[in-house]
Structures are given as structure tokens and as C-alpha cells.
Amino acid sequence: MMNQAIDTMLIENRKHFMIPGEMVASVNADNALRHAFLVLTKVRYAKVPVLDNDDHFLGLISLAMITEPMLGLDDINLKPLDELCVKDVMETGVPTIEDPYDVENVLHLLVDSPFLPVVQADGTFTGIVTRREVMKGINYIGHNIDKRYDMTPLPPTEA
């Protein structure tokens, strides 16, 4: 269980952790791989969310997922960029969170992911919580916890 003071301060800043969906680069599941390749190259993100026509979150796509079908043993074939769609190569089964979210759960999930998609109960994509924004919140706590709480050191314990 997380320290109550830290949990309280993280919860107070929770709204700052989420980047709204309209500010996040994404692609449609039906887009050609060529389009996703251009988006990922231009925004310089490792992965972006994949949405359907109704803004429901379906998965993630990365450059590696796009280039894998292009690579042969001794050549690069560009045909898959036009022949395949995002839905053909995207990653599914991605952990998501709903807002309001449990901060401790988010911390556990961000160990293995640079960001977490935030969805509504019906699966509609509303944004992402990034490891970077959460780390900014932890940095804030490290610099301000003693201004809010009496921090009296305890004697060292034997391990």
C-alpha cells in the first residue's frame, strides 16, 4: 500500500497527468500502413493509439509493426505499405485505464509502458497518461512534501 501522504499528493495532481485525446496523435484502424508510417515518422513517437471511426480505442501501432512485413531476408518490399491496413499489424490487448483512475495502479502499469490509453466505459478514447507526466508529479512531491507534512526522520532499522 502506498504512503498516504504521497498518494494524496499524487491524487491531487492526477488531472495534470492526462493529455487529452485531441492533443494525441492517432491513426484509424482502416488507414493504410503508409499513412501510419508517415504519422509516426512526423510526430517522432514510438507508438500511437489506433482508433475506429467512432473514436473507440482498439490498440497501438509502432514503426516496428509497420516495417516488419516490409523486411525480407535480403530486400525491403514497400508493397505492404499500400496493401495492408493498420488493423492488420497493430497491437491489441493493450492495458487501458478509465478516468478517474487509481494512481497506484497507473504507477504499476507505467513500469512496462511509456503511456497508458485512457478510455471511457464504452471504450471511447479520451487521452493518455504518460510516464513523463507522472514523473513530473513525483518530482513535485519530492520537492514539496515537507511543506505539507511534518517529516521527522525515524532511527534506522536493522534489516
Rank of each mutant, 00 (worst) to 15 (best):
I19R: 06
E104Y: 15
V48N: 03
A29W: 06
N31F: 15
P155C: 11
L110N: 04
Y149N: 06
L107T: 06
D30L: 12
D99K: 04
V134R: 00
A32S: 13
P49V: 03
V89G: 07
V43Q: 14
V39C: 08
D82G: 14
M9F: 07
S26C: 09
I66M: 03
P117K: 04
S113Q: 15
V118K: 02
D88I: 02
G127F: 10
T157E: 14
A36E: 02
V134M: 05
P114T: 06
V43D: 04
V86L: 05
V39K: 04
T124D: 05
L107E: 02
I66G: 02
N139L: 13
V24H: 01
Y149P: 03
M1E: 11
Y45K: 08
M18F: 08
K47D: 07
E91L: 13
E68L: 12
P95I: 08
V24F: 09
D88K: 04
R14D: 01
V27W: 05
A29K: 10
N3G: 10
F57T: 02
H108T: 15
L81A: 08
F125I: 08
D88F: 07
I141G: 06
R132H: 12
F125D: 01
Y101E: 00
I6E: 02
V89D: 06
M9V: 01
M151Q: 09
K42H: 15
R148N: 12
K87R: 15
L84G: 04
D55T: 02
H108L: 15
V118R: 01
K42G: 11
E98L: 08
P153S: 11
V111E: 13
Y45P: 00
N31V: 00
D99Y: 12
T8V: 10
K79F: 13
T157Q: 15
D88H: 05
A36D: 03
Y101G: 01
V48C: 12
A5D: 05
L109F: 15
E104D: 11
L109E: 11
L110H: 03
S62L: 06
K79M: 07
R44P: 06
R148T: 10
D150H: 13
L73W: 12
V27Q: 03
E68D: 13
I6Y: 11
G21P: 07
M151I: 15
H16Y: 14
Y149I: 11
R148V: 11
A121P: 07
T96L: 07
V89M: 10
A46T: 13
D99V: 01
T67W: 04
I66D: 00
A64G: 13
S62I: 00
L109D: 06
K136E: 14
P156L: 14
V103G: 01
P100Q: 09
V48D: 02
E104C: 09
L33G: 00
P100Y: 08
I66A: 02
S113A: 15
D74W: 14
G21A: 05
L63W: 03
K15I: 07
V118A: 06
P155Y: 14
E98W: 06
P80T: 02
I19F: 10
F57D: 00
R44V: 07
L51F: 10
G59T: 05
R14T: 03
P20S: 06
T130D: 09
A25G: 08
P69V: 09
T8Y: 13
R34A: 13
M70D: 04
